[in-house]
Amino acid sequence: MDAEITLTVDGAARTLTVDTRTTLLDALRERLGVTSPKKGCDHGQCGACTVLLDGDRALPCLALAVAHDGAEITTADGLAADGELHPVQQAFIDRDAFQCGYCTPGQVCSAVGVLAEVDRGWPSHATEDLTADPQLTHDEVAERMSGNLCRCGAYVNIVPAVQQAGGVQA
């Protein structure tokens, strides 16, 4: 069953027809040709498709497109829409925080989300004192980035890249 929806993707409004079964990820990749979010598992088990959905990091593989009519989506490509890399992206290059690159756009979007969440004072499993504001320590970043698998094993570079982008000297 088809439905017409409008999504704002990386700043541009796109109207498209989707099957009610179409996930947000497939809408982006297969209907709109927006392939910056990657499909690694299609079941919310790897994080490769992470985008910013209405401002927060989320997994479009587990979202039905039809349920997100009107949503605003920012992909890793959209983070550099004006041609200038986002500080997280620059930090990933500086720290060689990727190898094959397939998990990278998801890592980047996730990192942008992490920095915002820490700014808001959101705690994590690694937060020792739940009542205090969290800091961008190694353990905090590693825990918060654990929803993004990297099979190449770039974690040890991803953590300092996120810290660098968050203004912490690592």
Partner: peptide, 19 residues
């Protein structure tokens, strides 16, 4: 209710908890 905050934070991932 720290038990609840801790349980939630021990589950899934940031992306999934946002949804």
């Amino acid at each position: 209710y720290p038990v609840l905050a801790e349980a939630l934070l021990a589950g899934a991932t940031g992306q999934l908890r946002n949804t």
